[in-house]
Amino acid sequence: MSLNDILDALFPAGHTVAVANQVITGEATTAQGTVAVLGTTDAAAIDHAMALALSGFVLDTVERHPGRPLVFLVDTSGQALSRSQELLCLNGSLAHLASCVDFARRQGHPSLSLVTANAVSGGFLSFGLMADQAYALADAQVRVMDLRAMSRVTKIAHERLVELAGTSPIFAPGAGSYVRMGGIAAIWPVPSADLLDDALSAARKAVSAGDQRQGTGLSRGGRLLASDIATTVQNATAGA
C-alpha cells in the first residue's frame, strides 16, 4: 500500500504531508482536530539527517502547537550502516530524537505510532517505540533480526529457531509477537480513520499513565517475568 493510500485512509478529512529524504512531515485533520503527522517511508535506514529532521519537527510542533497529538508513521529497516554515520555518533542523534518525543509527552502531546511496513531495531526504538502507544498494520514486519541472521549470530540451528518461534513470542519476528509482549497495542487490518480516532483517545489517556507495557505483556501472556521482576526490584528491602 502506498503512503498516499495510507494517508487517505487514515485522514479522509484531509492531510498536507510532505516527503523529503524519506522523512514524512505535515499535518492532518481528524475527528479530534488537527494532528501532526511525521515519520519515515520506503524502509528508511535512519541516519543523522532523518533523525534531526524528525526531532526538529517535533520541537516545532511543541513550540507552535501546544498539545497537538503526534501521529508517527513508521517504515524503517533500522539504522543507516556506515562508518561516516557512526563517526558522528549516530546513537547520539537517535537519542536526541527519542528525547524530543519524550519531551513532547511531558508537555502534554499525546502520541501514537503506526508501523506501516517495516520496524526494525534502532530505527523503531528512536521514535516508534517512544510513542505512548504503538500499532501495526496487519502485513507489517516488526523485528530485531530475521531468523536466518539470528541463526548465524547465535549459532543455533535455523530449524530449531523456526520450531520455537512457532510457540514463543520472545524472539519470533512479527507484529503479533510484539502485541503479545506488550510492545504493540494492537494490529489494524487496514488503515482506518475510525481506528485512528479510537487510538487517539487511548493515547490521550496513556499520556499521563506512564509506561504500561510490562503489565500489558503480562496480561497478554507474552512477557511473564518482566513485570514481577521490575516490581520486586522497586519494592525490595536492601540486600545483604
Binding site: 523503531f124 523485528r143 524472539f171 509506561d211 510490562q214
Partner: peptide, 18 residues
Amino acid sequence: VRLHEANAGLIAISEIMR
C-alpha cells in the same frame, strides 16, 4: 539486544530509555 530474547530485549531497552 540479546538476540536469544530479541523482542523482550528490544521492548526492555525502550522501557529503559523512558
